[in-house]
Design a protein around this nucleic acid. Structure first.
Lengths: 174, 174
DNA sequence: ACAAGAAAGTCTCATATGAGACCGAATGAA
DNA sequence: TTCATTCGGTCTCATATGAGACTTTCTTGT
């Protein structure tokens, strides 16, 4: 499925179909780069996450917490909020739910008893290992059209963008 | 604000601080590219959209429909679903709400009376023009760390990825 | 022409989410 | 110490959202 007949100001059928369709989708937006990133990420993330939600009974924050714990165990909810952009209420709910499902443990920090460090349980690790292959496969499908040089380029650019996120000035934006 | 003290397996304080923080955030995930894209987009989109929601009383699908109509008027709900990844129920609700607010008109297609083509009203165009500068400014902030060559590279790569979205095989994924 | 099936859009219901109030613990100043 | 303030986390309430049933219209095959 893709856009069929665009009745408005699209030339009949001259250029190769791919470019015409792409123009219809990405068109003359005023935020071309952000729009493209959003478009691509939507088609990566939505189907993957919807499937995980349905199949494993997890919510989005739950899925992401398991992902994050996998490479950064012992993180606190507040730290997770900082770099994930999720709201603390959602993270709190998700952490409680994950503990109830025995997928993580929450351990009160001795140095500061307000904080709770989060750790994967074996069950959590096991569940993670059952849904992450789907995410990897879809990432591979997404990147299949790029050469290895292009993938390196892309990762380098994304790293650079990610490194400068704190400079965007969350408050100053219009 | 950024990740403070990563207690776990992070070397004390040797490399420049930026890289250390970046590693703590992007770490050893198994889906590095998708994760990076998600991270960056979250920090672009969430604050922007939350602000628009709060200030203009629009929901996400409503915001995106106005954006899309701006470069592709006359689109139908189904077409919008196809390329935006939104669900038809949400798009239907949003279209009804936008019409109620006088921001769009819905015109039944004569060729197929099931379809309704969507058009911006003057009020819709005016509202759009009030919130899009914020999105543009934030996009500019996001891209500020890249040289113009790098931006061209990025856009080229994103276009390529976007063009191949239909090949990902929505159903076939694990 | 007619029936069967697909498609566009709407509706309903259960659930997830965002915003912000709230609570208890830590920090800092007097 | 005591008080005020900040901070991590939880809770509540209103709203947005996803899934899928449903209605009407179009398409296709006979």
């Amino acid at each position: 499925m893709r856009p069929n007949e665009a009745k408005l100001p699209v030339p009949p059928a001259e250029a190769d179909q791919g470019n015409e369709g792409l123009r219809a989708i990405l068109g003359g937006t005023e935020i071309p780069t952000a729009y493209r990133i959003g478009y691509i990420l939507n088609f990566y993330r939505e189907p993957s996450f919807r499937r995980i939600e349905a199949e494993f009974g997890l919510t989005r924050p739950e899925i992401v917490i398991l992902l994050a714990l996998h490479f950064r165990e012992g993180i606190t909810a507040a730290e997770f909020c900082e770099f994930s952009g999720h709201l603390k209420a959602g993270v709190s709910r998700a952490a409680i739910a994950l503990e109830k499902k025995n997928l993580i443990r929450r351990v009160t920090d001795q140095a500061d008893s307000r904080r709770q460090r989060l750790f994967l349980t074996d069950a959590g690790r096991e569940l993670y290992s059952r849904y992450v292959p789907g995410l990897k496969a879809r990432e591979a499908a997404m990147l299949a059209c790029l050469s290895s040089t292009e993938r390196e380029q892309l990762d380098r650019l994304l790293d650079k963008l990610a490194a400068h996120v704190p400079d965007w000035g969350s408050a100053s934006e219009l």
